[in-house]
């Protein structure tokens, strides 16, 4: 599904991602774990086509991001760590804007929007201007814009920021549902409990390098312990 090969990115000579390679299967939830500044956001942005890699290639179902960016981007959905919405648009207008950019069909749009409004409980807010939204509400609207076009590859940076426990549970369940539908998810977080709950495989990244890739069970087995928090701290202790 997603194939990332030898990806590197430097900012002013300082490496943010070093020779990163990754293969994600269809219907997989892959969690990228790492401390602040480890290179998680840069990796996601590179895969979303928001940053230009210095070296390496990114392919989605054989489509090269560099050679066919429009075709590639029609298959992905990205949610940044800071959920930005144009302040003067309402939630509905923002979702419609994204739906319009992705050119989805009316029947699909109607069905999905009704479901999303119900699932994320945004009915009372969707026609209010975004400038009146809380951080959590913005996060919900950004999640809706992502799911309205049902991308094949979902890239989410820190999905739980600003969400209450109830909404965190809904997000977690939604991710699992999406994976069951055959969607691939690459989620970045530093919340270990969340990673443990959703990850089929996880990668630990530190200083731009992938230190570990495997299932949570493999990680525990390799370290001879069951608590991944300790392994995580050990792998990232150089930080």
């Amino acid at each position: 599904m997603l194939s990332v090969r030898n990806l590197s990115k430097n900012f002013d000579g300082i490496p943010a991602v070093k020779n990163l390679s990754l293969e994600l299967k269809k219907g997989e939830i892959f969690v990228l774990l790492g401390p602040n500044g480890a290179g998680k956001t840069t990796t996601l942005k590179l895969i979303a086509g928001l940053l230009h890699p210095d070296t390496g290639e990114i392919l989605l179902d054989g489509i090269d991001l560099k050679k066919e960016p429009v075709k590639y981007k029609s298959l992905i959905g990205y949610v940044p760590d800071e959920p930005f919405i144009y302040n003067k648009l309402t939630g509905r207008e923002f979702i419609n804007f994204v739906a319009g950019l992705f050119g989805i069909k009316k029947q699909e749009y109607d069905k999905r929007l009704t479901e999303l409004i119900k699932k994320f409980e945004i009915g009372n807010w969707i026609d209010e201007p975004a400038e009146t939204y809380s951080h959590g509400m913005k996060q919900k609207i950004v999640m809706c814009q992502l799911l309205i076009h049902e991308p094949e590859l979902i890239l989410i940076d820190e999905p739980l920021v600003g969400l209450d426990p109830k909404m965190s549970k809904i997000v977690r369940e939604t991710f699992i549902e999406l994976a069951q539908k055959g969607k691939t998810l690459l989620v970045s977080t530093h919340t270990l409990s969340f990673a443990r709950q959703i990850a089929q495989r996880l990668g630990i990244i530190n200083k731009g390098e992938l230190k570990f890739v495997g299932t949570p069970e493999e990680l525990a087995r390799i370290a001879g312990r069951e608590d991944i928090e300790e392994i995580y701290l050990k792998l990232t202790e150089e930080n």
Partner: peptide, 11 residues
């Protein structure tokens, strides 16, 4: 603004 990510990551 910061919403350029929406366009840059869309088709």
């Amino acid at each position: 603004r910061k919403g350029i990510w929406i366009i840059a990551s869309s088709p």
